[in-house]
Nucleic acid binder design. Structure first.
Length: 152
DNA sequence: GCCAACGTTGGC
DNA sequence: GCCAACGTTGGC
């Protein structure tokens, strides 16, 4: 069983948006980066734990916990010319882009801010904090997972 | 709005 | 295959 962190801009899709969906479950669409896709396609398993991270907002940080509710399947938004993530090169018969479903487990009692994560020595090797990191989906070790929950 | 970092594109 | 130009991410 693996742990993950998934970034989302709350103005587009927030932890509260996820909670408001039926069964607090929704699909994670719009990933258009190969490394992030490969994590979803090759390594993410149903039941894996996920930190929900808010980016590009007043307080960037980890805001909640979710679980993978369905493993990788085609991202239909890639075939929709009206969708901001439309990709004309993705062939419906052999989709380039995939998504998973995530289910909200709970919101954290408070946002664990990026500044706080950076200040924690035990998170030195956290992929999120790596210089220049732009991945929207990344692995989190069990130790790192527990350190974050400890901060909460 | 700025800008560092990095991925992608496309000419050669 | 190289690499400059360009686009995107995301913190500040």
């Amino acid at each position: 069983m693996a742990n993950w962190l998934m970034k989302s801009e709350p103005s587009v899709f927030s932890i509260d948006d996820l909670k408001a969906k039926p069964k607090q479950t929704w699909y994670w669409d719009g990933v258009r980066n190969y490394q992030a896709r490969n994590y979803m396609r090759d390594a993410m398993k149903k039941g894996d734990k996920v930190f929900f991270y808010h980016s590009s907002c007043p307080q960037p940080g980890i805001v909640g916990i979710a679980r993978v509710a369905r493993e990788a399947y085609p991202d239909h938004t890639a075939f929709d010319p009206q969708d901001p993530h439309y990709d004309a090169k993705s062939d419906p018969a052999n989709p380039t882009w995939i998504m998973v479903d995530v289910k909200c487990v709970r919101k954290l009692k408070r946002t664990i801010g990026l500044d706080e994560l950076k200040a924690e020595p035990a998170l030195e090797d956290f992929v999120l904090l790596r210089r220049g990191n732009r991945l929207s989906i990344m692995p989190v070790s069990e130790a790192q997972w527990n350190v974050v929950l400890g901060l909460e």
